[in-house]
Nucleic acid binder design. Structure first.
Length: 129
RNA sequence: UUAUCAGGUCACCUUAUCGCGCUCAUAUUUUAAUAUGGGUGAGGAAAGUCCGGACACCAUAGUGCGGCAUAGCGGGUAACGCCCGUCUCUUCCCUGUUUAGGGAAGAAGGACAAGUGCAACAGAAAGCAGGUACAGGUAAUGCUGUAGUGAAAUCAGGUAAACUCUAUGCGGUGAAACGCCAUGUAUAUCAGCGUUUGAGGGCGGCACGCUCAAGUUGAAGGGUAGGCGGUAAGAACUUUUGGGUAACCACAAGUCCAGAUAAAUGAUAAGGGGGUCUCUUUGAGGCUUUACAGAAUCCGGCUUAUGACCUGCUUUUAGA
């Protein structure tokens, strides 16, 4: 898995997103929250990832864009190290829960925490399956 | 000198690394992807959705009533409630000080000679009328004049950011319009033909009018989710010349300039430039690189938000 983040790896289907909110499990490291769900997706795409910011917390479209770009950038840079050897495929949705503009370093720190916790959880759950 | 005022310009730049949308070329493999390389990629307001259009469908967008908008005059424009010019009025300033002349700003500047309404204080009375003092006049009477109140007293009075009237314009819904493909349930769809009753549905509120509507023949469609088109070469932009006081127009030459759809245009580092502060001779160092804000069918305006710089003016206002 490379550090690219093309269209194929993005979460787009409305049905999938609805299922995520209904059935997905979550990991929180405030102000970030990850909702994930194991899915059956095309073989070459292991993880489909989306990003969302509430327009209630940020009225300005510029600020929402900025936060979504920060989240995407950090996911892009960190996914390579973490998911190279992952098994199964997942749908991801990152939410930003905070009400103030984050700094790059904060997003990076919380992103790493969340991804590490996710890997631990997955490795614990896998034997059960 | 600064702020204010008027007009204009820009919206940090370059390189490297990683990355994203669209597109072109080549190669691989195979009909859709991958790789490499090139090109291109947010705004002056993209915003508010307040006006005007283009375009599409609903009847070739109809008739009457109602409703809404606009309102000196002339011009510009595809069109406008926008823009330009000009007249009049109001306010302020200067010259003059009787009239007037100049400058700036503003104006919801058609009609009260159709009807209805409204008008503080003063006043008898601001109109279904009514009357004080003095004088005149008459058969008689506010019948007439003067005084008095008031901005205004039978004057064609004032008022239409009062109803109203006049003139002109306006059908509705908005790209989730609309056209095509495809998925797939079972008659709710479409097309042709036909028809008694016109119940009921649709076409902006109402009326008229139009249209659909039981049957039959044929076709493959609707909800829902998806794809393609619509969709970016245009009332386009830049420059020259000419016309016009101006808004703007004409001719010629050149340019191609975002097309996403859970929504691309980003991140990091270095250098340069800008701003600001401190030390202060040149210069050095620190901080900051910022405001408002993100295309979603496309244009023309208006309004609102907002950083920096440049030019002009000292007539007026405020501070030194």
């Amino acid at each position: 898995m490379s550090s690219k983040f093309p269209k194929k790896e993005r979460l787009k289907r409305e049905i999938l997103i609805r299922r995520l909110f209904e059935e997905g499990k979550s990991i929180t490291s405030y102000p970030l929250k990850l909702i994930y769900l194991p899915v059956h997706s095309p073989a070459e795409v292991k993880i489909q990832c989306g990003v969302a910011v509430s327009s209630r917390n940020f009225k300005s479209a510029v600020k929402r864009n900025r936060i979504k770009r920060l989240l995407r950038e950090n996911y892009r840079l960190n996914k390579e190290k973490n998911f190279n050897n992952i098994e199964g495929s997942f749908a991801f949705l990152f939410l930003y829960l905070g009400k103030e503009m984050p700094r790059y370093e904060d997003v990076e720190r919380h992103m790493k925490v969340i991804l590490k916790q996710f890997l631990i959880k997955i490795s614990n759950e896998d034997p059960v399956k």
